[in-house]
Every structure is written in structure tokens, then in C-alpha cells.
């Protein structure tokens, strides 16, 4: 499209050069000035702009407008289809994880990961249910898995990974504060009892 425009412009330029009015149409002295200035590339550009303006005026006629609409509609259709493919390629109907390509979009892959992590959590909790000596390890593992799940949802489903840094600050600050507050409450002895 852009290339066509350029070609058109050069064709038109030649026309312009050929159609420079006869000298007698100009006041005295101006014709010479014009002839001289034609060597100046800027003037050529200006002339080209003028020609383009003229074509635009021509395009305002009804048949031209109808034709234009048709072309634009076709273009839009093509573009939207192309865009769709581009979109899909970007989001991916496939997802690459650790070098393997899965035949599902990223969001679906994350969903499977979340499900698998949940199952892992439940199994660990059930297996270690009675092992009170391993309780600390169990708590650490489970908290870690839950954090990974939360991280996946926040970074991918909530798009925090690619979004504005301000959102990240707005979210992380209270999370850190909450963790510190909870750890503080856990570390001070609770008053009361039975």
C-alpha cells in the first residue's frame, strides 16, 4: 500500500513537471524564479503535496467514496483475520514449559498446573497427617506450594507479570505488610486461654 503511494507520487511528479504552466501565465520574473526553484527538491515535494490534495478532492465524489468503502471493508476483514492469527501465536494455542511444547494455551496450562499443585498439597497433607514430628516441614512445604499457586494466579491470570509496575507495588506492599503482621502476632505470646 505504502509502496503504491510512492510510485503514484513519482508518476504524478513527472506530470507536474510536464504541466508547468506556460510562461505568459506568470507575472514578470516569476517564471524564471519558478524554473530555478524546480531544482530545489523542497519545491518538488510541495508540488507533490498539492497533487495529492487534488486527488483527495477527486476522491470525494460519490462513486470514488463507494469504491473506497469497499476496499476498506475488505482490508479490515483481512487485517482482523491476520491479527487473530498473530494474537493466537502470541498468546499461544501451545505453551512451552521447560522446553516441552504443550498443545494448550498458556491459561489452560496454568490451570492444569494449579490443579496438579492442589492435588500434591492434599496428598502431602494426608500422608503426613499423623506424623507430628514432621509438622514443621509439612507446614513449610504446604505454604510454599500455596505461594506458588497464588503467584501463578496473580502473575498470569491477573497479568501482573506484564502490567504496570505500579500495580506490582500496590499489591506487594500489603502482602508483605500482612505477612509481617501475621508473623508478629504469631511470635508474641497470646494472652488468655481456658
Amino acid at each position: 500500500m505504502a509502496e503504491e503511494e510512492k510510485n503514484l507520487t513519482q508518476d504524478e511528479l513527472q506530470e507536474v513537471a510536464e504541466s508547468v504552466p506556460a510562461p505568459d501565465e506568470y507575472p514578470e520574473g516569476q517564471a524564471e524564479a519558478l524554473a530555478e526553484s524546480l531544482d530545489d527538491p523542497n519545491v518538488v515535494d510541495q508540488a507533490a503535496v498539492e497533487v495529492l490534495k487534488a486527488t483527495e478532492q477527486g476522491a470525494d465524489t460519490v462513486p470514488m467514496q463507494a469504491f473506497d468503502k469497499g476496499v476498506t471493508a475488505a482490508q479490515n476483514t483481512i487485517e482482523s483475520v491476520m491479527d487473530h492469527q498473530g494474537h493466537n501465536a502470541h498468546h499461544g494455542e501451545t505453551t512451552t514449559v521447560f522446553g516441552r511444547t504443550l498443545p494448550v494455551p498458556l491459561y489452560t496450562a496454568v490451570f492444569f498446573a494449579l490443579g496438579a499443585l492442589t492435588l500434591t498439597e492434599v496428598i502431602i497433607a494426608e500422608v503426613l497427617k499423623e506424623a507430628s514430628s514432621l509438622e514443621t516441614i509439612k507446614i513449610i512445604i504446604l505454604t510454599g506450594i500455596a505461594s506458588v499457586k497464588a503467584f501463578l494466579v496473580v502473575s498470569i491470570y491477573m497479568h501482573l507479570k506484564d502490567d504496570s509496575r505500579a500495580y506490582l507495588v500496590a499489591f506487594l506492599t500489603p502482602v508483605i505488610m500482612a505477612i509481617v503482621a501475621i508473623l508478629f502476632l504469631l511470635s508474641v505470646p497470646a494472652t488468655g486461654g481456658y
Binding site: 503482621a181 508478629f184 502476632l185 508474641v188 497470646a190 494472652t191 488468655g192 486461654g193 481456658y194
Partner: peptide
């Protein structure tokens, strides 16, 4: 917040001053 019945009376003070 009822220390007689399993609650923690300092919990309020901590959260309130948070």
C-alpha cells in the same frame, strides 16, 4: 478478644494500633 474463653485480649490492641 475474651481472654477467659480462648480469646486473645492483646489481639485487639495490636491490630488497633496497626
Amino acid at each position: 478478644f475474651d481472654a477467659n474463653n480462648g480469646g486473645d485480649v492483646l489481639l485487639w490492641q495490636n491490630i488497633f494500633w496497626f
